[in-house]
Design a protein around this nucleic acid. Structure first.
Lengths: 112, 112
DNA sequence: TTTTTATACCTATCATCTCTAGGTATGATG
DNA sequence: CATCATACCTAGAGATGATAGGTATAAAAA
């Protein structure tokens, strides 16, 4: 694989959001809790991280929204579009690639 | 583990630099090439990333330096201090922790 | 011989993310 | 009645990488 021409670090919030939404539609507040829960409290992104990210992903056509009012509270449900699915796969591959590379460097007995 | 109270993403350049220097002392230019090489071109940090990082790590007491002139060119060799070793271990653990967590979330058949 | 490439150091500025800290509003709980 | 949980939102700060320069010597190529 060619050297990274574009930033390849970070992107973890985006990766997790897309992954969760792949299973079913969710609303923002729910996603914030779900990441905390699914990671066993290890990972926690505040609403200030997730909401702007959801808006950006919708702008980019990776997500679509549906509004619904429940118990007098308005929720915005997000679903993944085909474009979003592609983006998820790309991000997941990048992550695993980076990860394996780093794991190998860490494990190497002695660097020449 | 408690939720992340401090930033935990990124830090990859620092992790790799400390890891390489754990094996033997190296100079900046050499580190830039070594990361490229050890990662099979997958990861590449320009000098503008590595040099400031080395200076910061030295300021923090994680690295010490030794100057040497070879073939009319001056090199600055960096070595890891005990503090730097501790920092490396902490970073490596954080990385593996984060990584396992994300791997589990990605692999989960269906998030409830 | 002149120019380009490789070596070896460096800094400043930009861009991008994430983080913190707020703000609004409703319903449930104590 | 007050506080907490739910549910949305934005603005501004902070950190980190990315880009783009700049200096200087030696070796290789043109």
């Amino acid at each position: 694989m060619a050297p990274n021409s574009s930033p390849f670090l970070n992107g973890v919030p985006e990766l997790l959001v897309l992954r969760l939404l792949r299973d079913r539609e969710m609303y923002g507040y729910e996603i914030v809790q779900a990441i905390r829960g699914a990671s066993g409290e290890t990972i926690s992104f505040a609403e200030g991280v997730i909401y702007p990210l959801l808006h950006a992903l919708e702008r980019d056509g990776a997500l679509t929204t549906r509004r619904q009012t429940i118990n007098g509270r308005s929720r915005v449900y997000y679903s993944v579009t085909p474009a979003g699915t592609g983006r998820l796969q790309a991000l997941a591959e990048q992550w695993q690639n980076l990860n394996q590379t780093i794991a190998a460097i860490l494990a190497e007995p002695r660097h020449a």
